[in-house]
Design a protein around this nucleic acid. Structure first.
Length: 301
DNA sequence: CGGATTGAGTGACTCCGCCT
DNA sequence: AGGCGGAGTCACTCAATCCG
């Protein structure tokens, strides 16, 4: 048996790995200045991770951005690094695939002062194709597979905050917002008007807001808070309420949804975890580009 | 030192989509 | 419709590291 070639990549000077890419000319605008290509020692037994999560996210970002398959992504990243004059190894496409499954994508976001007001919406993204493997894997036959994707936008910065991405039959959760962060209001449509959602929102001491609806039974804190909101809405009327809650800004999150869809209607990954990672990478890219500059619209004199 | 653990590389398998 | 190439995933193997 022929033994694996000595290294497809030249041996690397590991000590140079911690050099900030930005200092290298910032060839790649979405690379964080603190990005470390090589994974730090984690002290666990076993073969250590070669590539850091940041490196993985970078490679997968290239993949998403240029709509490349895994194999071509590895080649493109190698080429980019060469252009940047960096002698760094590039993960194998198989490594990319495996690490994508467990990758915790870092989604950059900016924060304005004051409590966070969230606009929540969801959209659906189609699986790759309708092949038999899906029916086999997911036990659903003859039905198109969709993933529901939840986005929460911070209207102050237009950044998308970490989202929950669940199979459509699962419930909704207000996850991934740091526990220390104060949430002011959560604005969502009727799809989120469930007791579980309200419970999650009330637990964070936030005010849930929705368009219209009937009163619930006053049997728990979540229901009472919701009823109060509804009564206020009815009392003051829709127009005032709209101004009060800024509901019209919902159109902004729908614009962000369209933006997200511009990455393509389909996700390449087949496994749910990898799909989640892929969506998160799209969101991270959107926020990154958003942070580069957003049009500021002011009323004329 | 050697077993346990875990990540990376390799080849094979399967699916998708294009082409004929 | 079927062939074929490209692509994603998986099982297996190898390699590196920890720990008793």
């Amino acid at each position: 048996m022929s033994k694996p070639s000595p290294a497809r990549y030249r041996t690397t000077n590991w000590s140079s790995y911690n050099v900030s890419l930005r200092k290298r000319g910032a060839l790649l605008i979405w690379v964080d200045k603190d990005m470390v290509w090589r994974a730090p020692r984690d002290g666990r037994p076993g073969r250590p991770v070669v590539f850091s999560d940041a490196a993985m996210q970078f490679c997968l970002s290239i993949k998403v951005l240029f709509k490349l398959p895994l194999r071509q992504t590895a080649g493109m990243v190698a080429s980019l690094l060469r252009l940047a004059g960096l002698d760094w190894p590039v993960p194998d496409f198989s490594t990319l695939c495996r690490r994508q499954e467990t990758l915790a994508v870092q989604i950059p976001y900016r924060r304005a002062d004051g409590p966070l007001n969230l606009l929540v919406d969801s959209t659906e993204i189609k699986f790759l194709g309708d092949g038999e493997w899906q029916a086999r894997k997911h036990g659903v036959q003859g039905r198109r597979q969709w993933r529901k994707e939840h986005l929460a936008m911070d209207p102050d910065t237009s950044d998308i905050r970490p989202v929950e991405f669940t199979p459509s039959r699962d419930g909704d959760r207000l996850g991934q917002i740091p526990a220390g962060e104060q949430i002011g209001t959560v604005t969502a449509d009727g799809a989120y008007d469930t007791r579980r959602c309200h419970k999650a929102i009330i637990e964070r001491q936030a005010i849930p807001i929705r368009k219209n609806g009937r009163l619930w039974k006053d049997d728990c804190g979540a229901a009472r808070a919701r009823n109060e909101t509804l009564r206020a809405t009815r009392y003051y009327g829709r127009a005032f309420w709209k101004r009060w809650t800024g509901y019209h800004t919902r159109s902004r999150i729908e614009a962000r949804m369209r933006c997200l869809k511009s990455f393509g209607e389909r996700i390449m990954a087949r496994d749910p975890d990898r799909q989640t990672a892929e969506i998160h990478i799209r969101v991270a890219l959107m926020n990154r580009f958003n942070a580069l500059g957003t049009a500021e619209i002011v009323r004329g004199a």
